[in-house]
Structures are given as structure tokens and as C-alpha cells.
């Protein structure tokens, strides 16, 4: 009986040891790529961050680890930590990460000058290439940054260049909208109208363009046309441009419609 218990204890102790060794192996010694993927999928969890720390210790020159580790910090408002990590990724591979950092400065921090510095630097590192930071045309992002700085001549210039880069049929519809808004700020109503119309030619659901046109027609005292676009904006409101993380600079709200309706009345 004693022998039986002893064997049982040895088996149990061995199983527990194997269990611990397997977990330690998976966390610290299995394929780096597999661990990177696993940690990325657990974005934000403490385990994910701990695994990135282990990976950084083992592979300190891998820019992707710093980049991926930065993401949840920035999404949750811990910019000091998030950008320290992102800065490290940029330091290791500027061509790969400058665009994303510029995008983050633009959309998450509204640091328009900082965004332009990163985007311009990226452009200078990639001559002859139209960069697409985080999937968006670099000139669109530059246009948005100048729009944020209220430099409407420059924002217009870059949005138009973005449309040229992509071709009218493939350009981001919001590039037409932003060009229209920039023209409006510069007092060029006809050009603004022209660009809002172009946005609507691309898609009749462009709520922002309908609101822009409603505003122009209201200012021109063309109330019928203004009402038409206001009604369309209301009808298609669910198609408005929004983002779960941040408010866009040209984001429209139901209040914008109410305000225009009050003016019409």
C-alpha cells in the first residue's frame, strides 16, 4: 500500500511538473512568431503585455513587437507609454512605422504639426512612392492635418492631390467632401458645391456632402434645394462617416441637421 501511494505521488508530481514546464515553454521558449501572434490576439490583456516583454528581451531589434505592444495603450489613452513603444518601433524601422505614428498623432492626439512631421519624413524616405499609412492615402492624411490647422489652402492642395493619386473613381469620397469644406472656409461656394456634387456622384449616401450642399443652398436662399439635401442627409444618416475610436474632424451629427432645419424654418 505504501508503495502504491509513493508511486501515485511520483506520478502526480511528474504530471504537475510537466504541466508547469509546458506552460513555461509556451510562454518563453516556443516559436517567437507563434508567441507574437498569440500575444497580438490577446491585445490589451496583461498576459499579452507580459509576453511582449519576454519577446522584447529575446528579440530587442524586432520593431513589430514594440508596435503591437503600443496599440492598446494608445487606444486606452495611455499615450506616454504607447508612444514610447511606438517611437522605438519608428527608431528601428522608420519606413514601416512613421506613417502609422503620423496617423496616430493626427487621429488620436490631434497633434497636427507632429503628424505632418512624420508624414513628410516618411514621404522623403520613399521617393516615387505614394505611401498609404494605415491604409489611407498619405496626401489625404496631410490634407486632414492642414484642415485641423485651419490652413485651408494647403488642405485643399493635399486633398486634390490625393484625388489625383488615386484617380477620381477610386479616391476616398471624403477627399471630395474635405475639399468642399476647405473651399467653403475660403469663401469659394461654387467650387465647394462642385466638390460636394462630385462626392454625391461617387455615392448618393454621402451625408456630409448633402449637409454641405444644404448649407450652401441655405446661404444662397435656395430653400427648396437646401431642404432636398437636408432630407437626403436625414434619410441616409446611418451612412455617415464615423469611427469607434475617435471623432473625425468633419464628423456630422443629428444636431447639424436640426440647426439647419431651424434656419430653414
Amino acid at each position: 500500500m505504501k508503495r502504491f501511494f509513493k508511486i501515485l505521488k511520483l506520478i502526480l508530481a511528474s504530471l504537475l511538473t510537466v504541466y508547469s514546464v509546458v506552460i513555461i515553454y509556451m510562454l518563453a521558449f516556443s516559436s517567437k512568431e507563434d508567441r507574437y501572434t498569440f500575444a497580438s490576439h490577446l491585445q490589451g490583456a496583461c498576459l499579452s503585455q507580459s509576453m511582449f516583454e519576454i519577446l522584447k528581451f529575446q528579440d530587442p531589434s524586432n520593431d513589430r513587437i514594440y508596435f503591437e505592444q503600443s496599440v492598446p495603450y494608445n487606444k486606452r489613452g495611455y499615450y506616454e507609454k504607447g508612444f514610447r513603444l511606438l517611437d522605438k518601433a519608428v527608431e528601428i524601422d522608420p519606413k514601416m512605422h512613421l506613417g502609422y505614428r503620423g496617423y496616430m498623432k493626427l487621429r488620436f492626439l490631434r497633434d497636427f504639426k507632429g503628424a505632418l512631421e512624420d508624414l513628410d519624413r516618411l514621404d522623403s524616405l520613399t521617393p516615387g512612392v505614394v505611401d498609404t499609412p494605415w491604409g489611407e492615402d498619405i496626401d489625404f492624411l496631410r490634407g486632414e492635418a492642414y484642415f485641423g490647422l485651419e490652413n485651408y489652402e494647403k488642405s485643399k492642395f493635399y486633398f486634390k492631390r490625393s484625388i489625383e493619386n488615386q484617380g477620381e473613381d477610386w479616391a476616398d469620397i471624403q477627399a471630395f467632401v474635405y475639399t468642399g469644406l476647405s473651399e467653403l472656409e475660403l469663401g469659394n461656394r461654387e467650387q465647394a458645391k462642385n466638390h460636394f456634387d462630385k462626392a454625391l456622384n461617387q455615392s448618393k449616401y454621402t451625408v456630409e456632402a448633402h449637409i454641405g450642399l444644404a448649407r450652401i443652398y441655405l446661404e444662397n436662399a435656395e430653400l427648396k434645394k437646401s431642404k432636398f439635401h437636408l432630407d437626403k442627409a436625414e434619410e441616409y444618416f446611418s451612412y455617415k462617416r464615423n469611427d469607434p475610436y475617435n471623432e473625425y474632424l468633419n464628423e456630422v451629427y443629428k444636431d447639424d441637421l436640426s440647426l439647419l432645419k431651424n434656419f430653414e424654418a
Binding site: 509513493k6 505521488k9 511520483l10 502526480l12 508530481a13 511528474s14 504537475l16 511538473t17 504541466y19
Partner: peptide
Amino acid sequence: TNIFLLISAVLA
């Protein structure tokens, strides 16, 4: 044996 079991259990 007991020490081995104790350490492995604590570690796990």
C-alpha cells in the same frame, strides 16, 4: 517524494 510533490504542486 513528498518534497518533489510539494514543489511541483506549488509551482503549478
